[in-house]
């Protein structure tokens, strides 16, 4: 029972936290001096990027558990989690990759500047796109391969960030996060909370669906087995 209600709980919290954080961001937080109103994108863009990375690592860790604990209940749970997290990396990543350039278009005058963070987020998104593609279109038996891909994706998270950073050493990087007044940080947390609740709720729903799909498969197989036993003339 609680399993079914849990996503609802998260959605409810998100439904409360979202309007609160939006009014807080727009009505009670000062306008940033250099960038102006457009900096308001930051309050959802940055938490979403954090969530994306956390989901990527979750996906990798779950995939590793899936691989090491073969064919047990826990393996299935981990598999569902890795699929759900992998798909959500694509959704949140798309959000980051679209809101980022919109922000960039307003502040830098250009949407895509091959800034280190843009490139590394893009690469990370590609890795998980490969994961989802492989899960969806890979032949039977490729789900372990996809899991290995997810593990590498998670290992790649820090490597990508570091590699792109040293690749861009010649370019100045704008360090927005870290030098913000406390007021702006305080407005970031409700937004982060709202997004986390929304994401976790969706994640739970997706996990549940994946588990249901697995159980349905099992049921179909059991039915097929019984049908075969009957047609072969054996006693049911």
């Amino acid at each position: 029972m609680i399993k079914h209600r849990l996503p609802l709980l998260f959605f409810a919290v998100a439904a409360l936290a979202t309007p609160y954080s939006v009014q807080r961001i727009f009505l009670h937080t000062g306008i940033e001096k250099k960038m102006g109103t457009v900096q308001k994108i930051f309050y959802f863009h940055v938490p979403l990027a954090w969530i994306m990375m956390a989901l990527g690592i979750t996906c990798g860790v779950a995939a590793a558990i899936q691989l090491r604990k073969a064919a047990t209940g826990r393996s299935r749970m981990a598999e569902s989690l890795s699929i759900a997290a992998g798909e959500l990396v694509l959704v949140t990543g798309l959000g980051v990759l679209i809101t980022g350039p919109i922000w960039g278009h307003a502040t830098w005058g250009r949407a895509w500047t091959w800034d280190a963070r843009q490139v590394s987020t893009g690469l990370l998104w590609l890795v998980f796109a490969a994961f989802v593609l492989l899960r969806r279109y890979g032949a039977a038996g490729s789900e372990r391969l996809a899991a290995a891909l997810a593990v590498f994706g998670a290992v790649d998270v820090p490597v990508i960030y570091y590699a792109v950073k040293i690749w861009k050493t010649t370019h100045p990087t704008t360090d927005v996060v870290g030098s913000l007044p406390a007021q702006m940080w305080n407005s970031l947390w409700p937004a982060l909370g709202a997004l986390v609740c929304l994401t976790v709720g969706v994640l739970l729903v997706r996990i549940r669906q994946e588990q249901d799909a697995a159980e349905l498969d099992d049921a179909w197989i059991a039915l097929d087995d019984r049908g075969r036993a009957l047609t072969l003339g054996g006693a049911p």
Binding site: K40, I41, F44, I98
Partner: peptide, 18 residues
């Protein structure tokens, strides 16, 4: 005005994605 346009687009895209 331009900032508001950008912000609205960004928020709209975000929520429509979800």
């Amino acid at each position: 005005a331009s900032d508001y346009e950008h912000v609205v687009w960004a928020y709209g895209v975000l929520w429509s994605l979800f």
